[in-house]
Amino acid sequence: MSTPLLVLDEISKVYGSGDTAVRAVDAISLTVERGELVALMGTSGSGKSTVLALSGGLTSPTSGEVQIDGANLAALSARRLARLRRRTIGFIFQEYNLVPSLTAVENVALPLELDGWSVGRARVAAREALTLVELAGLEARYPADLSGGQRQRVAIARAVVGPRELILADEPTGALDSENGERVLALLRRRVDAGAGGLLVTHDPAFAAWADRVVFLRDGRAIDESQSQRPLTTQGAAEASSL
């Protein structure tokens, strides 16, 4: 058994202190393996976005431990944590967060260039990632010249480009219609099938149901889960390994 990609061990997050303390996340334990997509569902205020932020080291837990590929995030220096976030984790948000003054391919190449890749090598990888999300031919477009669905696919390409293994997605389909949302989910699913691990926050039940496991949160606690009875991979194992 290899080390799980993501381990959340009894993590809690408390905002404020004393009488006004709010326990946003309350002793949640969760693992995400490679090749597994896990969805978090719950009403607003249930703590699902906080769990995602904790998983990506964007905020640190009040108690408990977050491990990515066996490394305890709390034990890493700020520099090593930043490097782990750049190299291992891809974030996808509802608002795309693309740089408006950069083209699609420049946006996708940006994290690699920040990580010290040569511009040429980064662009090659970025083009491949854009082809994967079915945007070949639109590499030179600026975000303003792309539709919402296309922008989100650029954001996905940026999240999966290079060696990234852990994809953390917070309402990635929130601003899309159902047909475009389904395409975005299919791409996420395909990347997971090819060996990445994914943690998806969504309030849309149909999209959550593309996950192998759906974890239900209420008041910061994991109260229940639904494990898919059949594998949901969009391709055979042979195809997955060839990607």
Partner: peptide, 24 residues
């Protein structure tokens, strides 16, 4: 409420598996 929600999500997972079969 949660028991019915879990059952519905399981149904959706099954429907998605059927959709996956269709795509393949």
């Amino acid at each position: 409420v949660q028991a019915h929600r879990r059952a519905a999500i399981a149904q959706l997972q099954e429907l998605n598996a059927l959709k996956r079969d269709e795509h393949r």
